[in-house]
Each structure stands twice: as C-alpha cells, then as structure tokens.
C-alpha cells in the first residue's frame, strides 16, 4: 500500500506525508464505515456513537495521528464486519484477506469471525478460504526467502507473545505489568482490564441476540489478552475501540432497556463522553511524546 501511494504520487511526497496520508484517510474511512455499520445494526444515534469511536478514550486520536498500521487495519476490519453483517460474502472476503495481511493483531479477530462464518453461513466458506490465499502465499514466499517456516511469527513470538514471567504462561501482559509496578504500567493494566471486562460482559448479550460481529470482536480481544506479553498488552486497549459497536448494539438499539428506561445517548451524555474522551487523548498524547518515546 505504501509503495502504491509512493508510485501514485510520483515519489514527491516525503515519507511522513505518505504515511500520514494513508493512516489519516484510513481513520476517516473507518469512522464513516463505523457510522454505516452502527446505522445498519439498528443503533440509535449512529453518527454520535461513531464520533465517540473517533475520539475513543486515550487511543482514538493518538492512535490515528501516529501513522502506523492501526488505522488501516481497523478500517479494513470494520469494512469486513460491514459486509459480514450484510451477508455479502465476496466483499467480506476481500476485506478479510486484506485485513489479515495488514496487521497480525487482526488475526485475533479474524479467527472467531472466520469460524462463526464457516459454521453459520455455508456460502461464506469458499470466499473466505480464497481470501486467505494471499497471506498463505506470503508466508510460503517468506519461508523460502528466510529458510524459516515460522519466519512470519518468530519475531512476534519472541517479542510480543513469549511470557516474561516464567511461572504464569498466560495473561502475561497483565500479570507481568502488575509485577513490574509503577504508575504507568498499573494504569495501563487498569485500562486493559476495563476493556476486557467490557468484552466479557458484552459476549453473552451479543450471543443471545445473534450479533455475531459483536461476538467476534469480544472473543478476539479475550484471546489476545490470554497470549500477549507485557510489551504488547496495550494493543488490547488500542483495538478495544471496536467494542463500541457491540456496546452500542446492546445499549442503544430502540428495544434496549437502557434506551427505554434511561433515554439512551442524550445530548448531555454525548457531550460529557466526547469531552472526557478528547481530554484523555490530550493527556495520553503528552505521555507518548514526553515520557514514553523519550525513554
């Protein structure tokens, strides 16, 4: 994708401009697709919920501005979920194939989504298998190039998944961060645990209402929490912003108890949530720029 944009702009743009063009466009596309998906899922005030997705606490804006693969992967994941929801399997498979090529963290979401699609929708099987071919071809080509069949996951296994607390092989990201101590790491664990609690709580209502894309997102985050280590535990929170979709579905559809009894997302609630979320992004941006990246 980077090479394509470089070629399309005749190589005149500096590297950072190319990266920001890709990440920024993906961010805006992701917000638009989220709004479309929220609307089609029956969430009231879908565009307000989408704006909350755009300014998701701590990571909505900071993650978008730092031009790595998060925004692109999230946009592709949302496009895949949109076409899954519409049961348009060829389009769904195209974005499925692209998203698993883009970011390995997306594999955690692709696994439950693919399994559910295979079980629930027979017509999705062939397109999804075909969509996995480019990734398999890349892995095969890399295996030949590196003389290592596990080349694609070896650095991740070493740096991101291997437990750093030998006595506790799972949930190392949470346990090792707590053991390491310090305000930043403990705060990180609190935020990650809040996201995981939310995922756990949303799982059952999404399952009962057959909202499979919500189930996939929640299960994906929970699997990620089991295997990632301390160095990558923040990825759980970065990708937890997609949880706003099942959360909105459970709380903000017209027949939900929250809407009927409490009025749903009222303007004052929306305003308070938005301002709080933007303020947390400002604070986290300061942490990234002045503390984390200068260590």
């Amino acid at each position: 994708m980077i090479a394509s944009v470089r070629a399309a702009t005749f190589g005149v743009l500096p590297p950072l401009a190319v990266m920001m063009l890709i990440a920024g466009s993906s961010y805006v596309i992701g917000v638009a697709v989220f709004a479309l998906l929220a609307s089609e899922a029956g969430i009231t005030s879908p565009r307000e919920v989408s704006l909350l997705f755009a300014v998701h606490p701590f990571v909505g804006l900071t993650s978008a501005v730092y031009p790595d693969a998060d925004s692109v992967a999230t946009a592709l994941l949302l496009l895949c979920l949109l076409y899954y929801h519409r049961e348009q399997w060829v389009s769904c498979a195209v974005f499925f194939g692209l998203m698993i090529l883009t970011h390995k963290a997306i594999w955690f979401f692709a696994l439950p989504l693919g399994v559910i699609a295979f079980i629930k929708h027979r017509e999705s099987r062939l397109p999804l298998v075909v969509a996995s071919v480019p990734l398999l071809a890349l892995i095969a080509a890399g295996a030949a190039h590196h003389n290592d069949i596990l080349w694609a996951v070896r650095s991740s296994m070493k740096n991101l998944l291997t437990s750093q607390t030998s006595f506790f092989p799972v949930f190392d990201g949470i346990v090792a961060s707590l053991i390491a101590g310090g305000f930043a790491k403990v705060s990180k664990v609190v935020l990650v645990l809040s996201a995981l609690s939310l995922a756990g709580m949303l799982l059952l209502p999404c399952y009962r209402r057959r909202f499979w894309i919500g189930v996939s997102v929640a299960v994906g985050l929970l699997i990620m929490a089991v295997v990632v280590n301390r160095d990558n535990v923040w990825a759980i929170f970065r990708f937890s912003k997609v949880l706003l979709l099942p959360l909105g579905y459970v709380l903000l559809t017209p027949d939900s108890a929250f809407v009927r009894r409490w009025g749903g997302l009222t303007p004052i609630r929306f305003l308070l949530l938005s301002v709080g979320a933007i303020a947390s992004n400002v604070a986290f941006g300061y942490y990234m720029a002045k503390i984390y990246f200068v260590r």
């Binding site: 980077i2 990266m19 790595d68 890349l138 190039h145 996951v153 923040w234």
Partner: peptide, 21 residues
C-alpha cells in the same frame, strides 16, 4: 513499514523492534 516498502523483502520479520506504548 517505510523501509519495507522500499524493498522486495518480506515484511513482518523486521517489525516489532520498536514497541509502542
């Protein structure tokens, strides 16, 4: 990512050297 886009080398294997917060 930028450096990988300049070559035909397979990505992934060189990533993850700088871990984000």
């Amino acid at each position: 990512y930028w450096n990988d886009s300049l070559t035909l080398a397979t990505p992934y294997s060189t990533w993850c050297r700088a871990i984000r917060p």
